[in-house]
Structures are given as structure tokens and as C-alpha cells.
């Protein structure tokens, strides 16, 4: 087994994937166990609603950390974990939404519709979930081939907007103490800021490439990020 961190062997990578898979499952297992043993406090429905939502948000931020981490550390195989992480985001968000529909509202569709229409924090949370669905649906190689890399990528860029909606959803939910949502907002700002900064560096680098000598000049296509 190749234990080099830079270029792990296929076996090592599989082991890492299996480990990440189990780690992501842990919060759900913990909640399920707590539910069975009545260890989730006086208001267990509130506990699992809150926990599933928070884990969806945390995993979303972890997913968004893959690219910056890869760039900073040179560990390119991190990219191989991203699809699984993203699907876990969807799984926790779907569980969060299902708990709300079932345990919290007991399929009271009128109340649910009013919530989505009238309560901004639920509106943005719902929007974030709806926008996650196409991303989860196109998370397979077939969809990438079908859409073509470029279209697939532009579709999946909506994850940045989803992350902003998710943080706003949390922020608008709390009564007075915004410390926790502010922390997530800060992390998200750093993750998005890093991308913007690297984009800017790349733009400057490409613009500063000196033009070739006169006799070599041909029409040059510059790929400058917007």
C-alpha cells in the first residue's frame, strides 16, 4: 500500500473514501441512536431538525473547502472526495426537509405552504434545498457526459449561491444570538473570497504576459476569467 500523502495508491484512496463515508454517517447514526434511547433532550424533534440542518451546512462548507485545500496543499486527490461530500450535503438537507415536513408539520400542507411563502427564513431554506436537487441529480458521470463539462460546471457553480442561502436561512432563524451563524458566514466568506482572489491573480497574470515579437504575432485568444 502506498502511504504517500501526495499520491496515494488506489487502495489507500479507497480506504480514505471509506473512512470519509463512515465519518459523514456518524452524526446521523448518533441522532438515530439518541432518538431510540430518548437522549435528545426535552424537545427531540427540535434537536434533530436543528442537527440535520447544521450538518448539511457544515458538510457544504467542507465540500467548498476541497478546492482551496487542494490548491494550498497540492493534494489533488482531495478532489476525488468531493462528489461523496456533496451527496452527503444533499442527504442531510433532504433529511432536514423531511423532518420538517413529517415530524414538525405532520404534512399540514397549508401550514407548510404558508411557511414557505410568508417566512423569509423558510423561503430561503426551501430555495437552497430546491437548488440542491439538480446538483444531486447530475452528480454522476453519465450526467457530466450528457451535459458536457462546461454546462455541467456552470450548473454546479450554483452551489455558491446555495451556500449563501443556507447561511442566511440559519441567520434569520436565530432569535438574538447570531454568534453561530456569523461563524459559518465568516467561513463561507473566506472560502468564496479565496476563489475570488485566485481568479483575480489569474486574470492579472494572463494580462501581464508580454505580447510576442512582431513577426510571430497571430490572433491571440486570451482566456480571461470575468
Amino acid at each position: 500500500m502506498n502511504l504517500s500523502l501526495k499520491t496515494p495508491s488506489a487502495t489507500t484512496l479507497s480506504a480514505i473514501k471509506a473512512l470519509v463515508f463512515l465519518l459523514c454517517l456518524l452524526p446521523a447514526a448518533n441522532l438515530a441512536l439518541g432518538w431510540r434511547t430518548d437522549a435528545l433532550g426535552a424537545n427531540p424533534i427540535e434537536t434533530i431538525t436543528r442537527a440535520s440542518g447544521e450538518w448539511a451546512l457544515r458538510l457544504l462548507l467542507i465540500t467548498l473547502a476541497v478546492t482551496p485545500l487542494r490548491r494550498l496543499t497540492g493534494l489533488h486527490w482531495l478532489l476525488r472526495l468531493r462528489r461523496m461530500l456533496g451527496l452527503y450535503v444533499f442527504a442531510y438537507a433532504a433529511a432536514h426537509f423531511a423532518i420538517y415536513l413529517w415530524l414538525d408539520q405532520f404534512f399540514d400542507w397549508r401550514a407548510i405552504a404558508l411557511d414557505i411563502l410568508e417566512r423569509p427564513f423558510i423561503t430561503v431554506g426551501f430555495a437552497a434545498f430546491v437548488l440542491l436537487v439538480p446538483l444531486a441529480a447530475t452528480s454522476n458521470s453519465y450526467a457530466i457526459r450528457r451535459l458536457g463539462g462546461r454546462r455541467w460546471q456552470s450548473l454546479h457553480r450554483s452551489v455558491y449561491g446555495i451556500a449563501i442561502l443556507a447561511v442566511v436561512h440559519f441567520w434569520w432563524l436565530v432569535k438574538a444570538d447570531v454568534l453561530e451563524p456569523a461563524l459559518y458566514a465568516l467561513i463561507l466568506a473566506a472560502l468564496l473570497g479565496a476563489r475570488a482572489w485566485w481568479r483575480e491573480l489569474e486574470r492579472r497574470r494572463q494580462l501581464s504576459v508580454p505580447p510576442p515579437a512582431k513577426h510571430l504575432q497571430r490572433p491571440v485568444i486570451r482566456i480571461v476569467p470575468k
Binding site: 426535552a42 424537545n43 424533534i45 405532520f106 401550514a111 410568508e118 427564513f121
Partner: peptide, 19 residues
Amino acid sequence: VSHPRWSQATERRIGELRK
């Protein structure tokens, strides 16, 4: 009269499942 961010029409009695 709703709280601006959530409905006050129902409540969950602690210890009960349904609102």
C-alpha cells in the same frame, strides 16, 4: 398574530409528537 418569522397558530407540548 404570527411572529414575523414563524407562525404562532400551533405549538408542540413538550413530550408530545404532534403539534
